[in-house]
């Protein structure tokens, strides 16, 4: 972002990478895939790079409102310093926090989740996957992220994106507004679960595997971790893959890094 400013330019969008997108080895691949799509369609984008910091979502969900607001107010200073208006992110938690909770603290931006952004690219014809690409006819099931779905009512965008692959989309019984959480939300990602019969990600993975999909698609870094762990736990890594929708699109467009 600083480079843009040095050149006296403004990007069309700020790509908010998020901590998982920046640090999680698996999700870095999603970040790269999304950036490749941005390059491919020629969107002028920027990232904050080292100036980005946690949105404060995990702190807020864990009850640490103080730490959340520290993060939020600091981030708002940075974003406003650059005059950012439009933010795209591949993380539903960052999306929800910046979109819904930053305004009360003075940060007002147009915030778009990458599923909606990709949907627009497809609708505008900027991404056309000829004949569905490598995923044509493959059995794919989509897992709704709570913070995308119930929290913000975005159910169709990721499904529209997957529909462009011309794949065999199958729905789990618990989907859309009735979707079952992967188990990572509310800061569960960073702690051990409370005592119980089963882990939530196993329950959800079992539901997905019952459909015998080739691919479980997600649109959230935490869901991806939980479902990947679930698939591993069930010894199905060989035949069932967990991918983010951006990876599927990048791959279908032949943009593999």
């Amino acid at each position: 972002m600083a480079d843009f400013v040095a050149r006296g330019e403004m990007p069309e969008i700020l790509f908010w990478v998020g901590c998982a997108g920046a640090f999680d080895d698996r999700y870095k691949n999603v970040t790269r895939a999304f950036v490749q799509i941005l390059e491919h369609v020629g969107t002028k984008y920027a990232v904050l790079g080292l100036e980005e910091s946690c949105t404060g979502d995990p702190a807020k969900r864990a009850g640490n409102e103080f730490l959340f607001q520290m993060q939020a107010l600091t981030n708002i200073q940075v974003l406003d310093g650059y005059g950012i208006k439009k933010i795209v992110t591949a993380c539903p938690h960052c999306f929800n926090t910046i979109k819904n909770e930053y305004p009360a603290l003075g940060g007002n931006y147009e915030v778009i989740h990458h599923s909606t952004f990709l949907q627009q690219l497809i609708n505008d014809g900027k991404v056309r996957i000829a004949g569905g690409g490598a995923f044509k006819g493959k059995r794919i099931t989509f897992h709704d992220s709570c913070y995308l779905g119930r929290a913000n009512g975005i159910y169709e965008a990721p499904r529209d994106v997957l529909a462009a692959l011309d794949a065999d989309l199958v729905e789990m019984k618990r989907s859309r507004a009735n979707g079952l959480c992967c188990g990572a939300g509310g800061a569960q990602m960073w702690k051990e679960p409370e005592p119980g019969r089963k882990d939530i990600n196993i329950e959800r993975t079992e539901e997905a595997l019952a459909l015998e999909p080739a691919i479980i698609a997600s649109a959230c870094p935490f869901c991806m971790t939980m479902l990947s762990d679930g698939v591993k736990n069930k010894d199905r890594e060989q035949d069932v893959k967990v991918f983010d929708i951006a990876e599927l699109i990048a791959s279908a467009e032949g943009l593999n890094a």
Binding site: K60, Q69, E101, A104, N152
Partner: peptide, 9 residues
């Protein structure tokens, strides 16, 4: 409000 929007103190 959207369900994801928690209260601010």
């Amino acid at each position: 409000e959207p369900k994801g929007q928690f209260t601010t103190n």
